[in-house]
Simulated assay, not measured.
Amino acid sequence: MTRHPVTLIVIAKEPRPGRVKTRLTPPYRPEQASALAAAALADTLDAVVAACASCHPELPVRPLVVLDGTPGDWLPAHLPVVAQAGGPFDERLAAAFDTARGEPALVIGMDTPQVRAHTLAAACRTLLRTDAVLGPALDGGWWALGLRAADGSLVRGVATSRPDTGAVQRARLGAAGLRVVDLPALRDVDTAPDVELVANLAPDGRFATLARSFQATGLRAHDETRLTHSG
Rank of each mutant, 00 (worst) to 15 (best):
W143E: 01
D151M: 04
T130P: 04
L138R: 15
T130I: 03
L147W: 05
L145T: 13
W142L: 02
L147P: 02
A150G: 10
D139N: 14
V155H: 00
R129L: 14
A150P: 09
L134T: 09
L154S: 10
A149S: 14
T130H: 01
G141K: 06
D151R: 12
G141I: 04
A132N: 08
A149N: 14
L127E: 01
D131N: 15
A144N: 12
G135F: 11
R148W: 00
G141E: 09
L145P: 13
D131P: 12
G135P: 11
R156L: 15
A137C: 10
G135E: 09
D131T: 07
A149R: 15
L154V: 04
A150C: 05
V133A: 12
L134I: 09
L127F: 05
V155L: 08
L128P: 00
R129M: 03
G157W: 03
A150N: 11
L154T: 06
D139C: 00
L134S: 05
D139W: 02
G146Q: 03
P136T: 02
D151H: 11
T126L: 15
A132M: 09
V155G: 08
T126H: 08
L127R: 04
S153C: 01
V155P: 09
R148D: 02
A137S: 15
A144G: 15
T126G: 12
V133M: 10
A144Q: 09
V133D: 09
L154Q: 04
L128V: 03
G135D: 07
D131K: 03
G140H: 12
A132S: 10
L138W: 02
W142A: 09
D139I: 03
L145D: 04
S153N: 09
A150R: 01
R148A: 12
G152H: 01
G152I: 02
L138I: 03
L154F: 12
L145R: 04
A144R: 05
A144E: 07
L138T: 13
V155I: 06
A144M: 12
A144K: 08
G141N: 10
V133K: 03
G140I: 12
R156H: 15
S153A: 13
V133P: 11
L127V: 01
V133Q: 08
D151Y: 06
D131A: 15
G135C: 08
R156P: 10
D131C: 13
T130Q: 02
D139R: 14
G135T: 13
D139L: 04
R129K: 11
V155C: 08
P136C: 00
L138M: 04
L134H: 10
P136S: 00
W143R: 05
R148S: 12
R148I: 00
T126V: 07
R156Q: 09
G146C: 14
L128R: 15
D139S: 14
W143Q: 03
R148K: 14
L127C: 06
G157A: 06
T130N: 11
A149T: 15
R156V: 08
R148T: 08
L147A: 10
A132K: 07
G135M: 11
L134Y: 14
A150D: 08
G140E: 11
G140N: 14
A144T: 13
W142G: 02
A132F: 10
R129Y: 13
T126F: 00
L128D: 01
T126A: 07
G152N: 11
L147R: 09
V133W: 05
